[in-house]
Write a protein that binds this DNA or RNA. Structure first.
Lengths: 152, 152
DNA sequence: CTTCGCTCTCAAGTCTAGTTGAGGTTTATT
DNA sequence: AATAAACCTCAACTAGACTTGAGAGCGAAG
C-alpha cells in the first residue's frame, strides 16, 4: 500500500492524487507531460506531488467543464507564478476570463435554438435562405476537419 | 463537363451534390460509408444520387450545428422509411427531438455559468461542496472530438 | 526477504469527422 | 481517338484527450 497511511500533510503519490481528485493516474501522467502539473521524483523515480496539485487539478476539471481546451488551460496555469498554489485571487482572474467564452457559447446556442423554433415546421432548409443553414454566427470553429470543440 | 448540363431533374453526380450542398466530395463519401446517405452506381462505378440526397445532407448539416453526433444523425435518418426524401413532417419530428437536446445543453451551460458566478470569488473548489465540482447535471455529454468523459 | 500492489516508461489504440494523397478509371468534349 | 476533368478506392494523416498494454522497477507489510 501507498504512503498515505499516517502522513496527512506530506506529499502525495500519484495514486492518492488520482483518488482524491477523481481523475485517472494515466490522466495525471498526461497532464504532467503537457505541463499542466509538475512533480518531483523519489530516489526510485516515483512521482511526488505537493498539495497544490489538488487545487490545480480542480481548476483543470472545472475549466474543462466550461469547454476550455487543455492547451489553453495550460497557458493560463503557466501565468501563475512559478508552480505556486493558485489562490482565490488567481482563480478569480482565470474564471472571469473563461466566463466570457462560456457566455459566447451560450448565446450562440440560444440563437441556434431560436432559429430552430422558427424553422421547425417549415422544412425549407434552403441553402441560401434558411437561417439554420446560414452560419452567421460561426465563432471560432470555422474550417476544415476535426476541430469542433464545443462539448456539452 | 458533367451530367448537369441540360438535365435538371435527373440524378446527381457526387461533384454536383458537393457544389450544391456545400460539403466536400470526401465528406459525401464519408457519409455514405457511414450509411447516412446512399447512392447507386453507373456502369463505370460512379455514384449517382437521387435528389433527396440534397435534403438529407441539409438535415445532416443542421443537426451537426445543433451538436448532434453523426452516429445519432444516422440513426435518426434510418428511421425514415426506406431511403425516402425527408418531408417537412419528418423534419419536424427530428428537429423537435433534437431541440430538446439543445435545450438541455443550454440549460446545463447556464447552470454552470451561474455556479461560476457564485464561485468566482470564493476559490473554494472543494471536491465535495463546490457546485462547480459537483456535476449534478451530467446528461450524456455527447461531445464532439475526444471523449470528455464522465464526471468531468 | 519475499510478495503483492503501486508505479515507471513508452508505444500504440480509441473516437469523431473528416482531409489528403497516390495510383488508376470513366466520362464528356474536342 | 485523344485529352482533360471528374471520379474511383484505399491507406494514412489530423487533432484532442486520454486509455490500454507490455515489460520492468519500487516500496512496505508480513
Amino acid at each position: 500500500m501507498g504512503q498515505d497511511a499516517r502522513i496527512p500533510r506530506r506529499e502525495l503519490g500519484v495514486g492518492e492524487v488520482a483518488r482524491r481528485s477523481g481523475v485517472a493516474v494515466s490522466a495525471l501522467h498526461f497532464y504532467e507531460a503537457k505541463g499542466l502539473i509538475t512533480s518531483h521524483r523519489t530516489g526510485g523515480n516515483q512521482r511526488r506531488y505537493g498539495r497544490d496539485v489538488l487545487r490545480r487539478v480542480a481548476v483543470i476539471k472545472v475549466a474543462q467543464r466550461l469547454g476550455v481546451p487543455l492547451a489553453i488551460i495550460g497557458d493560463a496555469l503557466k501565468t501563475l507564478p512559478e508552480a505556486r498554489t493558485p489562490t482565490a485571487a488567481d482563480w478569480r482572474k482565470l474564471s472571469e476570463h473563461w466566463r466570457a467564452d462560456l457566455d459566447a457559447r451560450i448565446q450562440k446556442l440560444t440563437r441556434l435554438r431560436d432559429s430552430l423554433d422558427e424553422c421547425i415546421g417549415c422544412g425549407c432548409l434552403s441553402v441560401d435562405t434558411c437561417p439554420l443553414r446560414n452560419p452567421y454566427d460561426e465563432l471560432g470553429e470555422a474550417g476544415p476537419g476535426p476541430r469542433l470543440l464545443d462539448p456539452g
